[in-house]
């Protein structure tokens, strides 16, 4: 049997990432191909989190602990992961291609002077390993070889459809005490501000987005209204933030937030590549646009052609009419 496939278990203050299932599934599939056990690495969280990994095919959880590691720290997590790698000789190490996943793996790769392939959509174990990873946020794909004895990989988000959990046992716990330098400990989160309550752009089931076609900051009022009715959030394109109509925190796109809602309503958005790659993981897309040939319209599941300033209020009014009826 080969060395284990290790996956990085992301958490925030002991709260397991809701996206963990994706990497558990991707890691499990790779482990099967390699005839290797699936094991997870948890840095700094309470051991109690281990129970959350029951029924997921994980045989061992490597819990990395340090008395002064109290919050997320990119370098400290990278060092913790490297310590487990050096101690247990894995066949491959996987994380999800989130901000943290990519960051921690970059620290581990740098420490160990190993190559790292980020945001892979497909990996094939061989000599050398071959893989396909996203470029341009997903508008292009790159086939690569990864020449190393120890592949470090992150898997692109929203690519692996998670397998449902089974009734398997809770994993064994193995605790690692690591030494961390003063600098690594100092790189932890020192404080937090304004934790947002409720749905965020990244988690909303419905996102109502506006582009250049909205025309002004005030023009977003009708989008706000519709989003409110659908318990969703308002998003926007890069043109909108560049015009100062909305904050960058609302920007959907390659350099903004990548979203995967049940429904994306794109109003007055042409659908340039930069925007499209942030929205393409949406389950369904409804485009509202004056131009039937706009990229967003062509790629959408549903389209309404016309002026969003008339159509969006009409949709809101129709929802209200049916609710009151």
């Amino acid at each position: 049997m080969s060395g284990p496939v290790l996956i990085l278990c992301e958490h925030d203050g002991g709260v397991i990432s809701p996206e963990l299932e994706q990497i558990l599934t991707a890691g499990g599939r790779l482990a099967q191909r390699l005839d290797a056990p699936l094991e997870a690495v948890l840095v700094g969280a309470e051991e109690a989190v281990v129970g959350a990994l029951a029924g997921r095919g994980v045989q061992v959880v490597h819990h990395v602990a340090h008395p002064e590691l109290l919050d997320y720290g990119p370098a400290a997590w990278g060092a913790g992961l490297a310590a487990v790698i050096e101690g247990c000789g894995p066949s491959a190490v996987l994380a999800l291609g989130t901000d943290r996943g990519n960051e921690v793996m970059a620290h581990t790769a740098s420490r160990m002077d190993l190559p790292l392939a980020t945001n892979c959509v497909e990996v094939t174990p061989a000599i050398p390993w071959t893989l396909t990873r996203v470029q341009w946020g997903g508008s292009l794909l790159e086939d690569c070889t990864l020449d190393t004895d120890l592949p470090l990989l992150t898997m692109a988000r929203h690519v692996t459809e998670p397998d449902p959990p089974n009734s398997g046992p809770a994993p064994l716990l193995r605790t690692w005490s690591v030494e961390l330098s003063a600098a690594e400990l100092a790189g932890q989160v020192q404080a937090r501000e304004s934790v947002e309550q409720g749905v965020t752009l990244a988690t909303a089931a419905v996102v109502v987005s506006g582009g250049r076609g909205v025309g002004s900051a005030e023009g977003f009022t009708v989008l706000e209204d519709l989003a409110g009715l659908l318990s969703g959030r308002v998003g926007c394109s890069r043109a909108v933030t560049n015009n100062g109509w909305r904050s960058h925190t609302d920007q959907v796109g390659q350099t903004g937030t990548r979203i995967a809602p049940e429904l994306y309503i794109a109003c007055g958005i042409s659908g340039a590549v930069q925007h499209w790659v942030g929205a393409m993981a949406s389950k369904r897309i409804l485009a509202v646009n004056t131009d039937p040939a706009a990229n967003m319209v062509v790629k959408a599941d549903y389209a309404v052609i016309g002026d969003l300033h008339e159509i969006v209020p009409a949709i809101a009014a129709e929802i209200r009419r049916r609710r009151s009826g």
């Binding site: 409804l286 016309g306 008339e310 159509i311 009014a317 049916r322």
Partner: peptide, 13 residues
């Protein structure tokens, strides 16, 4: 295609 203009609202809903 769900239609053109505000008349499409019903099909959208």
């Amino acid at each position: 295609m769900l239609g053109g203009g505000p008349d499409a609202a019903s099909a959208v809903v």
